[in-house]
Each structure stands twice: as C-alpha cells, then as structure tokens.
C-alpha cells in the first residue's frame, strides 16, 4: 500500500472505529434505565457489540502503525475524534435514541457489507463477521420503529418528531473524505455517496411501513464537520467520562 492509500485507509478506519465507540458508549448509558427490561438488555448488548467491534478496528489501525487500542480509545483528546456529530448527541428520550439507532445501524450494516468486499484484506475479513452481527441490530430497530410508528397518535408523533430532529445529523454521517477517490480507485471502500444511496433505499422501505415521512429534500442540510474534528459541545464530556478510569493510572495492568 502506498503512502497516500495508507493515510486514506487510516482515516476511513478512524471514522468507523470512533462512530462505533461513541454510539456504543451512548447505548451503554441506557443500562439500568431502559423503558422495559428487554430494551435495557438490548441497548446494553448493542453497546457491548459496538465497543468490541470498535476495538477490532483499532487493532487493525495498530497494525498500520497507530497507537495501542486502549490508549487510542481512552486517552485521546476529544478534538481528535473522527466520529460524526450524530453519534455524540445525548440520548434524549427513548424515541430519539431509537430513531438514531435505526438510522445509524442501517448505515453501519451497509458500510460493513461494502467493506466485506474491500481490497484491504484485514477490514474485509472483519467486516464479513461484523455484518452478520449487525443483522440483529437492524432487526431490533426495524421492529420498534414500525411498531411505534403505527401504535397510537402519541407514539407516531413522537417518532416523527425524532426522525425530523435526527435527519440532518444523520445525513452528516456521509460527509466525504478528501481521499474519497483514492478509496474508490483502490477498491478499499466504494464511497460515502454510494453508501448514502443504498441507505436511503433501505430506510425508506421501513419508514413507509412505519407510516413515517422523511423530511422534504429541499430542507436537507447535513451537519458535516465530525469527520474533520468539528464536534458539538456534547463530545468532550462524553470522552472525559469514558476515559475517567483509564486516566487514573494509564499504565496499570488489569
């Protein structure tokens, strides 16, 4: 791999790993607080999956010369994170968390399906495995979004409001990299635009079943910036909290 391709690949992997780590942490904040026991378990299980998956991506980054996974995850300043702003937003109420989970996981599953065909073998192998696990995340999201979209007036209107609030942040997930063409030409990743196209197709099918409406296209104003280290005020407190124990004694043997 030449130098430019390596830089492009690293940036792609950081985006993916940071999204997983941060959404995983947000999911874990439902532990003990879920509206029903099954949902408490679901968000906690997804947190465990996502944080484990992020570690595997950080391990690939380590093979490419980056730092040791725990240090990179827990001892990095928040302004150096590559995650989209969407995943760092606070959980809000359950409707918002559920809608974000739906919009994020559809994108995540498609991203890993695309990466399973990557010319970069380590990520292709990992993606092959992860895409199977994500089936359950998407399945979970689809069931709840469809149920609550159709249940009663209150649940419907809350889910529609959540969709409207999430929308431009969700579009921000597909912020393009300056290395987009390198990734596409080297067949490492087919690109954010391709991903967004597939994502819109998949979520539209479910949202229709859920009687929910995607905001009108003229109002689409993606919140970009996360991939280039521009974050909301919510990321720093999250990163500080996540690294709190690690920072007490970074060199300690567990």
């Amino acid at each position: 791999m030449n130098e430019k391709t390596t830089i492009a690949t690293k940036e792609l992997l950081y985006k993916i790993a940071d999204d997983l780590l941060i959404i995983g942490h947000r999911n874990s904040e439902w532990t003990g607080l879920g509206p029903i026991l099954e949902e408490d378990i679901s968000f906690s299980s997804m947190a465990q999956d996502k944080i484990g998956q992020s570690m595997s991506v950080f391990q690939i980054l380590q093979q490419l010369g980056e730092g040791e996974p725990d240090t990179v995850a827990f001892n990095r300043a928040s302004e150096n994170f590559y995650n989209s702003q969407f995943v760092e937003l606070p959980n809000g109420e359950y409707d918002f968390s559920l809608m974000r989970h739906f919009l994020y996981d559809h994108a995540d599953q498609l991203r890993f399906e695309m990466l399973a065909k990557s010319s970069f073998d380590p990520i292709a192998k990992l993606a092959q495995k992860i895409k199977g696990e994500l089936k359950y995340h998407v399945y979970h999201a689809n069931i709840w979004v469809t149920k609550l979209g159709n249940a009663n007036e209150e649940s419907h209107s809350r889910m529609q409001t959540a969709l409207n609030e999430c929308w431009n942040f969700a579009l921000g997930m597909f912020e393009e990299s300056e290395f987009e063409n390198t990734l596409i030409n080297e067949k490492i990743f087919a690109g954010e635009n391709e991903l967004k196209k597939k994502w819109l197709e998949n979520i539209s099918l479910i949202l229709e079943k859920a009687s929910l409406k995607i905001p009108e296209e003229k109002n689409w104003k993606p919140f970009f910036g996360g991939r280039k280290h521009i974050h909301t005020e919510y990321l720093k407190p999250l990163v500080d909290e996540m690294g709190e124990v690690f920072s007490i004694d970074p060199g300690v043997e567990w």
Binding site: I41, S42, M46, H140
Partner: peptide
C-alpha cells in the same frame, strides 16, 4: 420472539 437480545450476545429471548 420477545427480544433479539438476551443475557449474552449470542442469545435471544
């Protein structure tokens, strides 16, 4: 199915 997630990652309810 009550939930696709159970007490461990590999089990559902």
């Amino acid at each position: 199915m009550k939930s696709p997630f159970g007490p461990t990652l590999c089990r559902s309810l």
